[in-house]
Simulated assay, not measured.
Amino acid sequence: MKRIVLLVATNLAIMLVLGIVSTLTGAHRFFAGSGLDLGTLLLFALIMGFGGAFISLLMSKTIAKWSTGAHVIDTPGNSTEFWLIETVRRFADKAGLPMPEVAIYEGEPNAFATGASRGSSLVAVSTGLLQSMTREEAEAVIAHEVAHIANGDMVTLTLIQGVVNTFVIFIARVVGWLVDSFLRRGSSEDSGPGIGYTITVIVCDIVFGILASIIVMYFSRQREFRADAGAAQLMGTPRPMMAALRRLGGIDSGDLPKNIATAGITDRPGWMALFSSHPPIAERIAALENAR
């Protein structure tokens, strides 16, 4: 019910663009004679990897508003908006957070939180969620999103994304150099990358980037358990969060736009579960039950 796929998808797009541009324009910097300068490559991978992750983090709130059409509530226009702002404020105060921006967007039951830091965050709730849930259940969902902010999940996931980005960039270019060296064996040219390097790196950036997202999604699923527990703590009992999860499991969650869509409301079967940002609802309810 939030924003992890936004971070991953934006990061993957940024890394793909940066990777292609750097490969086409600056790959020669990693070559020393006929070998590969691993030190320079590692430094480049660190800068690119963490740079891409933090760029996507800084863009996350703006893209979230744009992609969902979320309307930030500056002045409440009705009782529902007033209740929503006051609910977010109450949980933010209880969690020791600055007041996040609060937004509503049109759509099926869903919600998300995003932002580059605890002091620059956004909690957005869909009209479908407000209409289909009891106030107590909706409060639990809001508490869950506030708990994500309090836990610093966006920054944590960004750091994890930066690490896997670094490995993707580094390994892709090592593989590219090996393939290029194999294709050009016996060639009179003794330095610089060839077309084999360029094509291999672009393909590896895409494939390894997708595989790396499995790692990020694993950590995302662990963060969901923590956010559920945080919601239970903010609510004073796990019962409302469990009720909200049960209701979400029994209704059509709909889809957010592709770059912010999450898999948290419905379970993904088989190997697709590896790409899910949320654990199965049954596991989340069980975890809350066991913590009682």
Rank of each mutant, 00 (worst) to 15 (best):
L12W: 09
L18E: 07
G19H: 07
G26E: 06
A27K: 03
S34F: 09
S34H: 08
L36K: 03
G39F: 11
G39T: 11
A45Y: 14
G51C: 10
A53W: 09
L58S: 15
K61L: 05
K61Y: 02
T62G: 15
K65D: 15
T68P: 05
A70R: 02
A70K: 01
H71M: 08
I73H: 08
T75N: 06
N78L: 10
I85N: 01
E86G: 07
T87W: 06
R89F: 00
R90K: 11
K94E: 10
P100R: 00
E101T: 03
A103V: 11
I104W: 06
E106A: 15
G107Q: 06
E108G: 10
A111F: 13
F112S: 02
T114M: 07
T114N: 13
A116I: 15
R118C: 01
R118G: 09
S120A: 12
L122K: 06
S126T: 15
Q131P: 09
Q131E: 15
S132A: 15
M133E: 07
R135Q: 11
A140W: 02
I142P: 01
A143L: 07
H144D: 12
V146G: 01
G152K: 02
D153Q: 13
T156M: 13
L159T: 05
Q161T: 15
N165D: 03
T166F: 10
I169R: 04
A172E: 02
R173E: 14
D180E: 04
D180F: 00
D180G: 06
S181D: 04
L183M: 12
L183D: 08
R184E: 11
R184I: 06
G186C: 08
S188T: 09
D190F: 14
G196M: 13
T198N: 04
I199V: 15
I199P: 00
T200S: 08
V207Q: 02
G209V: 11
A212Q: 04
M217K: 01
E224C: 05
F225R: 00
R226D: 07
R239G: 05
G249W: 01
D252Q: 09
D252H: 13
G254Q: 08
G254Y: 10
I260S: 04
A261Y: 05
A263M: 10
I265C: 02
I265W: 03
I265P: 00
P269I: 11
W271Y: 13
M272K: 13
A273F: 08
F275N: 04
A282L: 11
A291R: 14
